[in-house]
Design a protein around this nucleic acid. Structure first.
Lengths: 350, 350
DNA sequence: ATGAAAGCGCTAACAA
DNA sequence: TTGTTAGCGCTTTCAT
């Protein structure tokens, strides 16, 4: 199939290319012209070249989603809902994996080449350098995660502090008084906030003893490696609080290998409520951080900002929802999916 | 940050825009000019506009991956390796989710608008209509999955026939003589070939009794629903062969709810060897269909075809590898990751 | 309502 | 080696 341009359509319809363009795009044109052009376009199988349109209109109708580890189910879930929202508005989704190879700063710089109209980014680490690159980027940016309040970006974030409080409260309610927190790397945004959340939650329960370690990564393998020494120690904790589901599953495996029963000998919790949490046995008590909603809201914020670059900066927090399963409760109950409570703070754009 | 064009760079360097372009792209230019232009570009923070380059060069350096259900871990795995391969060659990845909303035919038609240089598609159903649309598309296409031999596309496929033979042989070896196959929808490509594979595998074992049912979908829930009546029946099978891991996990859950022990009362197998298979307990015996390799090879084929549109059509089959786990074996062993055997058939392009 | 022509930002002939 | 110019395919003034 050979490339057919608007010039050929115009020629076949016997009109100028300007008229052809107007006829196809709903400009001023007589019904007669419209009919002729439509017919010619159909005959030739014409479809307008997206690149030429982009150059002329100054918009690509492409948006990028930048994420470090697309292997993590949480990010897949976000990506899926982002895709749904933007496709409905005629946008295409470009995946910018900021894998180990290139730094996210490079990715942001590359985005300045104008092939996308906006960016949604889930940074694992929010560095000054990244913030500077984002601020310098000549396109709308929505950050999925925590940034300083004065950064000036539309932001959607989970609420790690509340999430940690929910799991700690739940475990204390189950009479656990000796907790261990397996965090991910603390130089990451989730790591930092989950650590802060754990400390805060603990403060509300003076009688509770707790220790904290960091897994090398937010993965099953790293969770396993971190859990093993904890569970072998003489002062084995009664409950393990993992910074995410993958680490939590690693802890479940470690307990299994040591012959410990969950939840009888040990309670375990995760965070994210990924599909994995409901698939393992016992089911992993976790906190639904609203990944799908976060993705959806991020996409909506980006589209709104593109439509109106001057609008006020929005920060949306998605409320977490504890989901109790067998890993913390002998008679596991699965509460209904809780409704999402969104706190929408508006501030005037800097 | 305001948009800076090559014209401004040229002006600042005191040369023509042609010289600026040449200096930046490695054309003929004096060292002096190159230095001046580089400096000017750096001062201004110039980055070449990708859209204008695309229009001029006739290449976008974007490739699309079209897939129906990105929620399935198999497709995520493929996407990840595709992304890795093409990013190394300077290409960007566009995700074309052919969700329930739009038919894959519409997606292919949209791709003709010229915003990508090529397409990798994982069609769930290979219809005449789809093949016609793909053939008509004015861009290189690689199909992940089975297509008629004369379709003329570069193709990477798994080998469902061998995979089914591997699980059936394995179960028969374990002395199971009464099997049940839970397929996915048989009007899908995987469904059709796994059915064929099961029939073929069965033919090699005359004494074995078997029944087949179809789940409504390749999901855990559908697998559960399909397994329940099978396991409740008087002639309950000794082993369930699921068409993929998700269905297999649904079967595990059904067995659990009916108080059946796996593998003592019932053996279960999956296909795809997704991360889920090694996370459930007992571990799900499955077949590694080489998703990552299929994605990688597909990307390589596409890049090769873009580089040389006249090259011979390639069909690559990735050899499956049985991975035995606890769901079929009392003393589960985890064999090493098997090497990939690729059968590369070459035919002259039609 | 229509056509001629400019121009989005860039690269590549072609001349000089 | 460098500058001038055409043109990728399209949309959009500006005349008519």
């Amino acid at each position: 199939m050979v490339k057919v341009t608007i010039t050929q359509v115009a020629a076949r319809a016997g009109v100028s290319i300007a008229s052809a363009s107007r006829a196809l795009n709903g400009g001023t044109a007589s019904v007669e012209t419209i009919a002729k052009v439509r017919q010619a376009a159909a005959d030739l199988g014409y479809v307008a070249d997206a690149t030429a349109q982009s150059l002329k209109r100054g918009r690509t109708f492409q948006l990028a989603y930048a994420v470090a580890d697309i292997g993590n189910p949480v990010y897949v879930e976000m990506m899926t809902s982002i895709q749904e929202v933007i496709a409905a508005s005629g946008y295409r989704l470009l995946l910018s994996s900021t894998g180990s190879s290139s730094s996210s700063v490079d990715v942001v710089r590359d985005l300045s080449r104008g092939y996308v109209d906006g960016l949604i980014i889930s940074p694992l680490r929010v560095t000054e350098e990244l913030l500077a690159a984002l601020a310098a980027a000549p396109l709308p940016v929505v950050v999925l995660g925590r940034v300083p309040d004065d950064a000036g970006f539309d932001t959607v974030r989970a609420d790690s502090l509340t999430a940690m409080r929910q799991v700690v409260d739940h475990l204390v309610e189950q009479s656990h008084r000796d907790l261990a927190f397996i965090n991910g790397p603390i130089d990451t945004t989730p790591g930092a906030f989950r650590r802060e959340g754990f400390a805060g939650a603990l403060a509300a329960h003076p009688g509770v003893h707790a220790q904290s370690v960091s897994a090398a990564d937010f993965t099953i393998a790293a969770g396993y490696d971190a859990a093993l020494p904890l569970l072998r120690a003489a002062d084995r904790p009664q409950a393990i609080i993992a910074a995410n589901d993958l680490i939590g599953i690693g802890a479940l495996r470690a307990a299994e290998d040591l012959g410990l029963s969950v939840p009888e000998d040990l309670a375990v919790t995760g965070i994210d409520d990924t599909p994995l949490a409901s698939v393992v046995r016992p089911g992993l008590t976790s906190v639904d951080m609203g990944a799908a909603d976060r993705g959806r809201v991020a996409a909506e914020l980006l589209l709104a900002r593109i439509a109106d670059p001057q609008r006020a900066v929005h920060t949306v927090a998605i409320a977490p929802q504890l989901v109790v399963r067998g890993s913390t409760l002998r008679s596991a109950t699965s509460p209904d999916e809780g409704e999402i409570v969104a706190i929408d703070e508006e501030r005037v754009a800097g």
